[in-house]
Design a protein around this nucleic acid. Structure first.
Lengths: 122, 122
DNA sequence: CAAATATATGAACACATGCTCATACGTTTG
DNA sequence: CAAACGTATGAGCATGTGTTCATATATTTG
């Protein structure tokens, strides 16, 4: 697999658009606010662990509860917030609610954040 | 400029490391916490506007105050937080304090966040 | 339908957060 | 050194946030 193919695989690259097109977004207050809302969703320990667990596979509330080691209520409340912000989607499957990352954008942000924190100067 | 070169230019790609190396970070609580701290720094409107302004060029506190339209005190307080978290650095230049993005990681996170918010479903 | 299981929700509380106000610190200039 | 300018900081306050507890709402099973 060549460099370009791997980079595409990692979802770290936009498919279209010119370099630095994001710079224009810095003048759009709505985009700025939307961006902070996404970062805010990723800025809590419990929520981040939920999202991290969902990068592996979709999961039920009970699974997430076990994986994250907090109350079922806490998980449910945080899942509601993540759902409201569009980071995860849910479907019913019998008695269970199955949660999934909404799209690859979320996985990209998690990956970029983890890599940068992992390499962070000291 | 070819795709690979442009992608590298955008700093959206790691230079080394295997695909999905970040996945292992999901088991390191310290890395997870560090990641949430970075996202948290980006999750406030004022702070994000400060960082956005710094993507263009380094700036003094007074400039940032004018650009962001808030109190000098508010700017200073937020700059302190950003400094403590390692997202910006400061140097004295006469009476002024000049702030700069700490490294390209920060610009990458801003770019990725803005692009995804800008393209967000509805 | 009743009981059991899985999930969701509202209220309440402790704690964090971002701002303002007042003031202190640091640097340059006269 | 005093005055002016730029920046930093602490206290205080209003608001926001994440959790728990209790309870409600599905959904399946007997």
């Amino acid at each position: 697999m060549g460099d370009a193919a791997r980079e595409k695989e990692l979802h770290l690259v936009e498919e279209e658009g010119s370099p630095e097109e994001w710079a224009s977004y810095l003048e759009d207050d709505d985009v700025i606010y939307a961006t902070t809302q996404i970062f805010d969703a990723l800025a809590d320990y419990t929520r981040f662990r939920i999202l991290g667990a969902l990068t592996t596979s979709e999961r039920s509330v009970g699974e997430l509860q076990r994986l994250c080691g907090v109350t079922q209520s806490a998980i449910s409340h945080q899942l509601r917030l993540l759902r409201d912000r569009g980071l995860v989607t849910m479907r019913r499957e019998g008695q269970r609610s199955i949660y999934t990352l909404a799209d690859e954008h979320v996985a990209t942000l998690i990956a970029v954040g983890l890599e940068h924190a992992g390499h962070w100067p000291e």
